[in-house]
Computed example of a mutant assay.
Amino acid sequence: MVMNITILKIGGNIINNPAALHEALDYFAELPEPAVLVHGGGRKASQVISEMGRQPVMIDGRRITDAATLEIVTMVYAGLLNKTVVAKLQARGCNAIGLSGADGNAVLAEKRPVKDIDYGYAGDVRSVNAPLLEQLLRGGLRPVLCPITHDQKGQLLNTNADTIANETARALAAAGFGVSLRYCFELPGVMEDINDPTSLIRELTPDRYADYRSQGIIAGGMIPKLDNAFAAVAAGVREVIIGDLPALRAGSGTRVLAEPDV
Results as ranks from 00 to 15, higher is better:
Val114His: 09
Leu257Gln: 13
Tyr77Ile: 01
Asp162Pro: 04
Asp124Lys: 11
Pro147Asp: 07
Lys153Thr: 12
Leu70Cys: 08
Thr69Cys: 02
Tyr183Ile: 00
Arg249Leu: 09
Leu70Gln: 09
Thr84Pro: 00
Thr149Glu: 05
Pro188Val: 05
Ala173Leu: 00
Arg62Met: 14
Pro260Trp: 13
Ala35Gln: 04
Cys184Ile: 08
Ser214Tyr: 11
Cys94Ser: 14
Lys115Ile: 05
Asp116Leu: 15
Leu133Ile: 10
Leu25Glu: 07
Glu192Cys: 08
Ile148Leu: 15
Val2Cys: 06
Ile242Ala: 12
Ala247Asn: 05
Leu37Glu: 07
Leu89Thr: 01
Met3Ser: 14
Met1Glu: 11
Leu187Met: 06
Leu245Asp: 01
Gly104Gln: 02
Val85Thr: 02
Gly178Phe: 03
Arg208Pro: 04
Tyr119Leu: 15
Ile97Glu: 00
Glu110Val: 00
Arg126His: 04
Gly42Lys: 03
Arg62His: 06
Val85Cys: 03
Leu172Arg: 07
Glu259Arg: 04
Tyr77Glu: 08
Leu226Lys: 00
Thr65Ile: 13
Leu8Gln: 08
Pro224Gly: 13
Pro206Leu: 04
Asp26Trp: 11
Ala174Tyr: 06
Leu81Pro: 04
Thr205Gly: 09
Cys146His: 04
Leu70Asn: 09
Leu132Ile: 06
Val86Pro: 01
Leu245Trp: 11
Ala130Met: 12
Leu37Tyr: 13
Gln215Ser: 04
Val233His: 07
Leu132His: 08
Val262Cys: 06
Pro56Gln: 03
Ile14Asp: 04
Glu51Pro: 01
Gly93Asn: 07
Ser199Asp: 07
Gly253His: 12
Asn4Asp: 10
Glu239Pro: 04
Ser199Leu: 09
Ala258Gly: 15
Arg63Lys: 05
Ala122Met: 13
Asp151Val: 07
Ile97Gly: 08
Met58Tyr: 14
Val240Phe: 15
Arg255Cys: 09
Asn228Gln: 09
Ala173Ile: 00
Thr65Phe: 14
Ala130Glu: 08
Glu71His: 10
Asp207Cys: 04
Leu200Ile: 10
Arg202Ala: 14
Val57Ile: 14
Arg238Cys: 10
Arg126Ile: 13
Met75Gln: 10
Asn82Arg: 12
Val36Tyr: 11
Phe230Val: 02
Lys9Phe: 13
Ala175Pro: 11
Thr74Tyr: 12
Gly139Asp: 01
Pro143Arg: 00
Ala102Trp: 15
Arg112Thr: 03
Val38Cys: 10
Val114Arg: 06
Thr84Ala: 08
Gly140Leu: 13
Asp60His: 06
Ala232Thr: 08
Asn13Cys: 03
Ile59Leu: 09
Met58Ser: 05
Val240Ser: 11
Glu51Val: 00
Arg170Thr: 03
Leu245Ser: 05
Ile49Pro: 00
Met191Gln: 07
Ile5Glu: 01
Val233Thr: 05
Ala175Val: 11
Ile64Glu: 09
Leu141His: 07
Gly101Pro: 04
Arg54Lys: 05
Ala231His: 13
Ser46Asp: 15
Arg138Glu: 15
Gln90Glu: 14
Leu248Asp: 05
Asn13Ala: 14
Lys83Leu: 10
Asp118Trp: 14
Ile218Leu: 11
Asp207Arg: 09
